[in-house]
Design a protein around this nucleic acid. Structure first.
Length: 874
RNA sequence: GCGGACGUGGUGGAACCGGUAGACACACAGGACUUAAAAUCCUGAGACGGUAACGUCGUGAGGGUUCGAGUCCCUCCGUCCGCACCA
């Protein structure tokens, strides 16, 4: 009697309800089990979940469920990264309050996530836009301020004059605002910063401890932090040439060894010396202005030639008072790296050489490459940047590059200019402090009051949270907080005079820099519950997109340390790293389709026929052929979207999960295909039928385990226990595609053996069925739960431990080993697992295929690798 | 320009520490069942030659190390990613 098909949507709702009712995924820290904190990057509530979320959360859920089964006390929370621009844009476009829009999206997405059957502890749900979250963030801000880790400074920003807001560098496209299209201006604004640079060294050094992070991410962070070792060198300026008040110029260099190859100094257009010199020189002023305008776009910078303007100022070489070098303003010098000033050594730096050529400055080689002779060495128009032997460098001649560095450093450290050492060693970082001010409404208000008398005043803690006013207007560009009629007007907490609130809000990256801490005690009265945090942290497995490789992860690493240093957090182990292991999953991609008039088409609006070269798409609505485009990341703009809701309603969540985990290695992109999904759906029905067939053939599991097993039963048991072992290992290593393959393989064996009639098969079949169900449990939890119940167990599979594979079943008595002659495979040999070299060698040499391949030659050597291979060399 | 990753059948991909390349799946082809379709089941399949046994070739290209290389080393080609006047 064949059972009906497995009705996934119906059964999934049922089991989700059971799990929720029993609250089995709620975590608490007071248990004696080892803990495991599994976290996926929380979503921005944009409206609906997309396939990228499905993939991310399916992976995290497999890991969390597996760890639970392995006896860990698992924390697996979910929340919302709920502040940000899209809500404010929606407010502008649809006249809906950002909060209303956001919370409506959260409701939708929460129920979508719930329909995926994730083993989440929903009691810990947090939304960063809730005052119950951001009030703690404001407290943290104040503590960072006290500690000197938050400060205000004037800095250059990209200003969009139409939207009246600051733009991040990524939002400036070809020098124009990404929304307004207006030409972006450079403006000086006073902004709040976090002093991430204080931790530059530590953040770099500790990357070495993150052995369970992708090498790629560590490398990207290391490059971003960008440590370089060099020197600050002060150059005396010739009095009659220097502007008033300027007696010296300090430059930063990583190559003090090339000091005798110097032929000019150069400063950034914003350098004080440039500004002072420009006052008396309109042409120079015009040049500086031109440089500033160029500053915006990366593309412009690339295209720009190395250009400069001689300020007329002259500097004296540190080792030769009579050697005067010109000081230029140059367009390739950055004000915010080093000191905004360099010395140029044309032979040792390509930029400097280009510059020297253009302005006819001397090019003196100072480093001789290994193997070259000083008399014949020719730069051939290219700067030599590698190590070598010093030439044309007076007291350095003959030294290696490294020794020359040391020699210059120690001399300049002793040599005085105006009573201070003329040179000091200095480690420099590319990393800048983190500017967190945003001129926007939908973000965490910065809890500061500006008073004319008292200056910058912290909002007293008793007045926290500083909440956003509900009645803001979004009908025009600019910051709604700034133009709100009353919100910003307050009295100064210190003097009681009229004062104004800070109207900037915090970058949303601040919200996500500590949410993983808050999850450990989401209701705590203080930002962090130290006990809970030190129990759960660090996150044992963090999973998310590679797009956060730098900013979010770096900011979080900074925040963990800042929280420690403001006494909010301690780690139980000797680390300050928030994420012990990181996994970056690939994207979900799909084919794109275009109509003949050049519009993007949804996959649902297209019918695809044929295959291979004959594959074509037809626009369903019009019946006209459509163009099949490239396979790309699913995106709204290209309409190559598949809605998870549709898939879950049609095939079920297990199917979507299974497909996401199959085939593609999790770190690579997965191509979403209809064929793949229906294949996953077929496998679900197959498992269901398989369980059905077992129950039909052997309705009851024999209560007594047979003393001995026949060959078929033994084969089945071996396959089952091996699969159990390898699936566990694969999940542990997040190699879900391999786990899926192992399960397929095992179910093939199970199916094949069912038809055999052997006394010990029924028991083994029931054991195998239970193991199969256990193995698919983390990936397809609903189907597994349903099968588990059908097999007669009255427990929840989600609460069951991961069984231990029987070691005896994992090894074979007989092994098949390959036999090679001269490295070429000729035959195979079945031998006892414990056979010694002599036995294997003798057996191999007897093989007809070996004798034939040797063509009468005597074997010169026989290599035996036990249990693997025999290679006869002859 | 600098740094990095990757390159395996028609497709996605397996292959522990250098030891039987192509597991598993998708797609495909043939067959069974069916009035038919769907579903399901069975069979086949890297390429070339051969009825077959079998042989030769085969992991982007070329070279090297080794008894043995998809895996290690060198050179090159291609794809993707990150950074980029960083002194």
């Amino acid at each position: 009697m064949p059972t009906e098909r497995y009705n996934a949507p119906d059964r999934e709702r049922h089991w989700q309800h059971v799990w929720e009712k029993d609250q089995i995924f709620q975590a608490s820290e007071d248990q004696e089990q080892p803990k495991c904190y599994v976290l996926e990057m929380f979503p921005y509530p944009s409206g609906r979940i997309h396939m990228g979320h499905v993939r991310n959360y399916a992976m995290g859920d497999v890991f969390a469920r597996y760890k639970r089964a392995k006896g860990f006390n698992v924390l697996h929370p979910m929340g919302w990264d709920a502040f940000g621009m899209p809500a404010e844009n929606a407010a502008m476009e649809r006249k809906v309050h950002p909060g209303k829009w956001t919370y409506a999206n959260i409701d939708t997405m929460r129920s979508q996530l719930k329909s995926m059957g994730l083993s989440l502890d929903w009691s810990r749900e947090i939304a960063t836009c809730s005052p119950t979250y951001y009030r703690h963030q404001q407290k943290l801000f104040l503590d960072l301020l006290k500690k000197g880790l938050a400060y205000r400074k004037s800095s250059k920003v990209n200003w969009d004059p139409v939207d009246q807001t600051v733009l991040a560098n990524e939002q400036v496209i070809d020098g124009r605002g990404w929304r307004s299209g207006a030409l972006v201006e450079q403006r000086e604004l006073t902004q709040w910063f976090f002093k991430i640079t204080d931790y530059a060294e530590e953040l770099l050094d500790d990357l070495g401890t993150l052995v369970n992070w992708p090498e790629k991410v560590r490398l990207m962070q290391a490059n971003w932090i960008g440590r370089s070792e060099g020197m600050l060198i002060r150059w005396a300026l010739e009095k009659e040439t220097a502007p008033k008040g300027f007696t010296e110029l300090e430059v930063y260099t990583t190559r003090p060894d090339t000091l005798f190859g110097a032929s000019f100094l150069a400063v950034a257009a914003d350098h004080p010396l440039a500004k002072a010199a420009a006052e008396k020189n309109p042409d120079l002023a015009a040049f500086c202005e031109e440089c500033r305008r160029l500053g915006t776009s990366v593309a412009d910078i690339e295209a720009a030639e190395k250009r400069g303007f001689d300020t007329g100022v002259r500097a004296a070489h540190p080792f030769d008072k009579n050697w005067q070098l010109p000081v230029y303003v140059a367009n390739f010098i950055l004000m915010d790296y080093g000191t905004g000033a360099i010395f140029g050594c044309p032979s040792g730096d390509q930029r400097d050489m280009d510059f020297a050529r253009r302005y006819d400055l001397p090019i003196v080689p100072v480093i001789l490459p290994p193997g070259e002779a000083a008399e014949t060495f020719d730069l051939k128009g290219k700067a030599y940047v590698e190590d070598g032997t010093m030439i044309n460098s007076r007291f350095l001649d003959g030294l290696t590059t490294k020794a020359a560095f040391e020699e210059i450093a120690s001399r300049l450290e002793k040599q005085k200019l105006a009573d201070r050492p003329q040179g000091t060693r200095k480690v420099n970082f590319r990393l800048r402090d983190w500017g967190i001010s945003r001129q926007r409404y939908w973000g965490c208000p910065i809890p500061i009051i500006h008073c004319e008398k008292c200056g910058v005043v912290a909002v007293p803690e008793k007045d926290l949270p500083v909440t956003l006013p509900e009645d803001a207007t979004f009908d025009k560009p600019g910051n709604p907080l700034e133009r709100h009629p009353t919100w910003k007007h307050v009295t100064c907490p210190t003097c009681g005079e009229a004062a104004t609130r800070e109207t900037d809000t915090m970058d949303t990256f601040v919200d996500s820099s500590w949410y993983y801490v808050r999850f450990t005690a989401p209701e705590a009265e203080t930002p962090v519950d130290m006990n809970a945090a030190s129990y759960w942290l660090p996150v044992d497995q963090y999973i998310g997109g590679i797009e956060h490789a730098i900013l979010h992860l770096l900011y979080s690493r900074f925040f963990a340390r800042a929280l420690c240093d403001t006494n909010h957090l301690t780690f139980a182990t000797n680390t300050r790293e928030p994420f012990a292991a990181l996994f970056t999953q690939g994207m979900v991609t799909h084919e794109t389709y275009n109509s003949q008039d050049g519009f993007w088409l949804l996959p649902n609006d297209v019918r695809v026929e044929g295959e291979g070269a004959g594959r074509r798409a037809i626009e369903i609505a019009t019946g006209r052929p459509a163009i099949i485009g490239a396979t790309e990341k699913m995106s709204k703009s290209k309409k190559n979207l598949v809605d998870p809701d549709d898939i879950i309603a049609h095939y079920g969540a297990d199917c979507a999960r299974w497909f996401m985990l199959s085939d593609s290695p999790p770190e690579r992109d997965v191509i979403w295909t209809e064929a793949g999904v229906s294949g996953a759906g077929r496998f679900i029905q197959r498992v269901w039928r398989l369980i059905d067939e077992i129950l039909e053939a052997y309705p009851q599991k024999p209560s007594k385990k047979p003393e001995t097993f026949g060959p078929d039963a033994l084969e089945l048991r071996k396959a089952a226990h091996r699969a159990l072992d390898s699936v566990g290992k694969a999940i542990e290593a997040l190699r879900f595609n391999v786990a899926v393959a192992n399960i397929h393989e095992f179910s093939n064996v199970l199916q094949a053996i069912l038809s055999r009639n052997e006394a010990s098969v029924p028991w083994a079949a029931h054991e195998a069925a239970a193991l199969l169900v256990t193995m698919i449990g983390p990936m397809m939890p609903h189907l597994a739960e349903e099968c588990w119940a059908r097999l007669g167990y009255n427990t929840l599979l989600a609460n069951e431990p991961w069984p231990v594979a029987e070691p005896d079943l994992l090894v074979d008595d007989q092994v098949t080993i390959a036999v090679q002659v001269n490295g070429k495979r000729r035959d195979e040999l079945v031998v006892s697992r414990t056979a010694n070299r002599e036995e294997v060698e003798a057996a191999a040499l007897k093989l007809g295929s070996v004798v034939r391949a040797l063509e009468g030659r005597a074997p010169k050597k026989v290599i035996v690798v036990p249990q693997r291979i025999v290679n006869v060399v002859g």
